[in-house]
Simulated assay, not measured.
Amino acid sequence: MFMTLNSYIKSNITRLAPVYDTSESRWLIRIILEKLKGWSQTDIMIKGDQDVSAELQFSIDAIIARLLRNEPIQYILGETYWHGLTLKVTPAVLIPRVETSELVDIIVNENKSKDLAVLDMCTGSGCIAIALARTLPFPTVTGVDISEDALHIAGENAALCKVKIHFLKSDVLKPINLPEKSYDIIVSLSSISKFMWDG
């Protein structure tokens, strides 16, 4: 059954009501349309009276069904926008949070020296390592994680963001054979230690 885009959006806002409020639902539908069709908010407004194809309805319906099962939209779409970066994410890694972006800003603001050695423990998607590699002046960055799947995602993200990072598989609770003898910055998710790591 064909519907105009405006009508289809309204129907999906109603479908999402048990899980999301109206503003969240509108935001979700907007980023779904941006991902599937490349449409901006302006495009959506212009196309409001146009019919939505059956193919597009099928694709969106599948995503809505997953949202109603409480799957994060980032995992459904396979990516997230964070700290000015578009990063791949899967259930193998945590979705980067706003607080983590703030941590990166603190590190950058407090460390103006060049050529700093940075160690990102439990790197996950590589978000912190990548952001620091892009914003610190000429750093050497190492990311460590125990998960092979996480390291694969982190490596893909580093390549997409065009930064060089040494990723290493290891359990951070055990002795690690690190590529640098010492580190100026050691960061792990929500904490930062500014001390030398003698390995």
Rank of each mutant, 00 (worst) to 15 (best):
P96V: 04
V98M: 14
Q41R: 15
T14K: 15
T86K: 15
N70V: 02
R97V: 03
S23I: 12
T42D: 12
Y75G: 01
R97G: 07
K35N: 12
V118P: 03
T80V: 13
A133M: 08
Y20L: 09
W39S: 01
T22W: 01
Y20G: 01
I29V: 03
C127R: 06
S125M: 03
R69V: 02
E71K: 08
L103V: 07
A129S: 09
S101Q: 11
R134I: 03
P96Q: 08
S125L: 07
D115T: 03
T100H: 08
T14S: 13
R30G: 02
I76P: 07
Y75P: 09
L136E: 03
A62M: 11
K47M: 12
I107M: 08
R15L: 15
L116E: 10
L56S: 02
L116C: 11
A92P: 04
L36N: 03
S23N: 10
D115K: 15
A62F: 10
W39V: 00
I60Y: 12
V19D: 06
V108Y: 11
L103I: 07
R30Q: 13
S125W: 03
R97P: 04
S53K: 08
L87S: 02
E102F: 13
R15F: 07
D115R: 15
E110A: 11
D21C: 07
E24L: 04
F138V: 06
I107Q: 01
K10A: 13
I13S: 04
I31P: 00
G126A: 06
P91D: 11
D105T: 11
L94Q: 08
I31Y: 06
L56F: 09
P137Y: 08
